[in-house]
C-alpha cells in the first residue's frame, strides 16, 4: 500500500505522523507541507497524532469526479465524516473522520490513523490519513 501523495505523512517507530511545514519566518505551522516554490520557506515538521475535534460534518452524496477519486460508484457510495481536528499548540487540520458509535462533539479526543483509500491508475492500493475518535 502506498500513500495517495508523497510528503503527506510518514511512518515513524512511534506510528504515523502527518507532515506539516513550519514557516522559517514567524514559525507558523501549516498542513500539508507546501510543495514547489513555497517549499523553500518552510521546514518539515512531524505533527502530533493526537488532537481534539474542532468541527465535523458528514458527506452524504458522492462528490463529483474529478476531483474525487474514490473507487466506488454512486450506488456503492458510503457517507463519510469529514471535519477539523485541533493539534494543540500546532495547527488545526482537515481530515476524514471515523466516529464509530461515539457521538461527535467539540473537543472529542481523536487519533491519527493510516487506512486504505482507493486504487491508483496502475491498480495499486493507495492509503490516506484519517482521525479516529478514541474508543471508536
Amino acid at each position: 500500500m502506498r500513500a495517495i501523495a508523497p510528503d503527506l505523512f510518514i511512518e515513524t517507530p512511534e506510528g504515523p505522523r502527518l507532515l506539516g511545514g513550519r514557516r522559517r519566518e514567524g514559525g507558523d505551522v501549516v498542513f500539508p507541507l507546501p510543495q514547489g516554490g513555497e517549499r523553500a520557506f518552510y521546514e518539515p515538521v512531524e505533527l502530533s497524532p493526537h488532537g481534539l475535534l474542532w468541527s465535523w460534518t458528514v458527506q452524504r452524496f458522492r462528490p463529483k469526479s474529478p476531483p474525487y477519486a474514490g473507487d466506488e460508484d454512486e450506488r456503492g457510495f458510503q457517507p463519510y465524516a469529514v471535519g477539523y481536528v485541533e493539534l494543540p499548540g500546532e495547527v488545526i487540520v482537515e481530515s476524514r473522520l471515523e466516529f464509530g458509535e461515539v457521538e461527535p462533539r467539540l473537543g472529542l479526543s481523536m487519533r491519527l490513523e493510516i487506512v486504505p483509500f482507493n486504487h491508483g491508475a496502475d491498480g495499486d492500493l493507495q492509503s490516506c490519513y484519517i482521525f479516529r475518535a478514541e474508543g471508536a
Binding site: A5, W54, P67, Y80, G83, E94, R96, L106, F117, C128
Partner: peptide, 27 residues
C-alpha cells in the same frame, strides 16, 4: 491546492459551510 485534497473528497464548498455552522451551533 494539491490533487490529493480533491481526490479524498474534501474539496466541497458544502462541507465548509456545514463545518462552520456545526461549530457555531455548539459554541
Amino acid at each position: 491546492l494539491p490533487d490529493w485534497y480533491g481526490e479524498l473528497g474534501m474539496m466541497l464548498t458544502t462541507q465548509f459551510f456545514a463545518n462552520k455552522i456545526q461549530r457555531y451551533m455548539a459554541l
